[in-house]
Design a protein around this nucleic acid. Structure first.
Length: 101
DNA sequence: ATAATGACTGAAT
DNA sequence: AATTCAGCCATTA
């Protein structure tokens, strides 16, 4: 089982309308310092994937993909479709954040 | 085996 | 408040 597959397994557990930070996913995988590797795993995801990659955000609830406007807008649109309300490019992790039981 | 890369993060400017 | 810097570590070359 590769690192990627473990990342996908965690991300796919996140219910609609909830989000997780890269560091949180890394923490579930073993260490909060795996954030970058989580990012790498999602970056190598195919476009037609069923993995809800848009539910993974940067720390403090800021959106990832800020360097890529096209995908950034897509991520925001997907999250809003799930009922998440943004507060000026950020969203309250305290409310939408999720951790596996 | 070594070196470079990056959807990150937290501290320091 | 906005940027830059320096660690991080799986993957790739």
């Amino acid at each position: 089982m590769s690192f990627r597959e473990r990342v996908y397994a965690v991300v796919m557990r996140v219910p609609a309308g909830r989000v997780m930070g890269y560091g949180h996913v890394g923490a579930v995988l073993g260490s909060p310092r795996l954030a970058r590797q989580v990012g790498w795993a999602l970056a190598s995801l195919p476009r037609d994937t069923t993995v809800p990659w848009h539910r993974i955000l940067r720390s403090s609830g800021r959106l990832a993909l800020q360097g890529d406007p096209a995908r950034g807008m897509l991520q925001r649109a997907l999250l809003e479709d799930e009922g998440i309300v943004f507060e000026a490019d950020c969203l309250p992790m305290a409310r939408y954040g999720w951790m596996p039981p």
